[in-house]
Each structure stands twice: as structure tokens, then as C-alpha cells.
Design a protein around this nucleic acid. Structure first.
Lengths: 138, 138
DNA sequence: ATCCTACAATGGACTTTGTCTAAGTCAAGG
DNA sequence: CCTTGACTTAGACAAAGTCCATTGTAGGAT
């Protein structure tokens, strides 16, 4: 986390209170907040922070490769700070809970050349869907 | 296609001009239109069709399992009429072109029990990203 | 320590995507 | 060919996100 701020400073990022707060809010495991959720939490620490700034900062963090944008949900994009370890997502279809997961094997290798239509394939995104233990017992 | 209309009638669907037009617009291979694109094309055949009807009809087709909703793009949902053959998607990061693809292997099987967090996993959605031949040569 | 200035933040208007509703229309069975 | 409940319509509304002109400030320069 402070590593993150360190790394960003080295890349010429101007360190403002707003950016620090956004970075802090995103810290943790299995964190997948929407922009609005990030904003709501940021406001608790820095009441005057604006929505536009949160969007800008998230966008910058994504461009810098420090945060991933995921669309596990069909509504808002979510922001995943776990950008340095490849992983996929497991989503509860009922409550929307999200966990980072690490499938065995490499799904990229599962796409035969005959199925590539001349594309240069560089990335694959996998979303598992199901029911979480909480929702199953309810 | 006319099979589709047939099947829907059998399920008690009232067959209106609007619904027929939406179904026609969705016909074909590698078709992945957004709701707005479906509306734009539907209007060419039936000028008075409203946006709400297109949304309603697409929603019904999805509920009936005749069309899939996919979010390969981070903006609008896309509608895929190829619902009866399991497949995944390959997307060009530049131009947004989408192809249906059939990876070997079963990605569901690649998620070990230890990575399931007690979830009952029922479905998996895979999106490959890359550059299409057109964009690569440009 | 203070000044400068380019970069960042603000808030409000705007856009896109999608949903809802009240009123009008029509497919299809009787 | 009448009736009726399902379907469609237009437009208001909502949620998520972008844009822009203005104001503020981090951090190097003095």
C-alpha cells in the first residue's frame, strides 16, 4: 500500500490528499468496489472529495496498471487492487459477493489456433458464477 | 429463425410485428448487437417501434433462454442469438469486433475445490481479448 | 520560507444505458 | 367481429460515467 504510493511517486504522480484517500480505500484482499462505493468511503475520510476526482483517480490507477477494472456485475465497473497477481473471479449470482480465485491451467492455451480467426490473443478474463454459502443456506 | 418464432408461439408468446422484427434483426452468426443497435435496425423495418419494446422483447428472449446477454464491452450489454450452442467470446480491444469461439477443455473443471470458498459454481463466462487482423494491419 | 506554475480537484451540466408508467392498441380466442 | 388482457408507446426518470471551465495546490525554483 505505502509501496503503491511510493511506486506512484517514482512515476511522477503528484501525491494529493484525494489520491492518497482513494488508494487507501482500495487497500485489502478481495476488494472489488464500484466507483460510487469508493467515493462513499473516500468521503468519510475527506468530505470534500468529488465524484469526478474519484473517477479520474481510478482511471489513472488503471492506466498505470496498479488496479484492474472488472465487470463481474452487469451494472457498474468494479476496481480490483490485486493487479499484480493474475487471478479470476467467482461471483454469487444472488448477493453479488466476489472472491478472487486461481484456476489451475491456462485458459489462453485452451483456445486452438483454428478458433482464433487471425486475432493476436493477449488476455483472457474468466468469471465463475454460482451461489455463495450464505445465500445457499437462506 | 422461423423455428424460433414457432417455439415461442408454442410457449404462449403473442406474436406481434415488433417481436417478429426484433427476432429477425438478431438472426445470423457472430451477431452481438447492443439494445440500441437492435433498436436502430428494427426501426428501419418498423419505424414506430419504441425503445421500451426493444428492451422488453430482448429481456423476454433472454428469460426464455433464446438469446444470451453478454458483456464483452464495458458499456452496453450485447445480445447473442447463439444460445443453444455453448461458446465463449473473442473480442478485439481496438475495434470491439466479437467472434464466437469454442475453447477446448472445460474451464469449470479448472477451479479446484479449495478455490471455491463453499460456493456452488454453476456457470463460467470466458472472454478472450486481443487484436483482430484488421486492426493489426492498420 | 515564499512564490510560481503546471498539474489536480471541483461541481454542475451533459451523455449513455436502461427502467418505469399511464394510456392507447391489437392478436387471437369465442 | 367483439372482447379482453397482453402488448406497445412516448416520455419521464434513474444510474453510471464523462466533460469542462474554474479554482486550488504540490512541490520544485528562488
Amino acid at each position: 500500500m505505502s509501496d503503491l504510493l511510493e511506486r506512484l511517486r517514482e512515476r511522477g504522480w503528484r501525491l494529493t490528499a484525494q489520491r492518497r484517500v482513494v488508494a487507501e480505500v482500495l487497500d485489502g484482499d478481495h476488494v472489488h468496489l464500484t466507483a460510487d462505493e469508493v467515493h462513499a468511503r473516500a468521503v468519510q475520510r475527506l468530505p470534500e472529495i468529488s465524484r469526478a476526482t474519484v473517477y479520474n483517480t481510478l482511471g489513472e490507477l488503471v492506466s498505470l496498471g496498479e488496479v484492474l477494472e472488472v465487470s463481474t456485475d452487469r451494472r457498474a465497473k468494479r476496481y480490483d487492487p490485486n493487479a499484480h497477481q493474475p487471478h479470476q473471479h467467482l461471483v454469487c449470482a444472488q448477493c453479488g459477493a466476489i472472491r478472487d480465485v486461481h484456476p489451475s491451467g491456462n485458459p489462453l492455451a485452451d483456445l486452438p489456433d483454428t478458433e482464433r480467426f487471425g486475432f493476436t490473443v493477449s488476455d483472457v478474463e474468466v468469471t465463475y458464477r454460482g451461489t455463495c454459502p450464505n445465500c445457499a443456506s437462506a
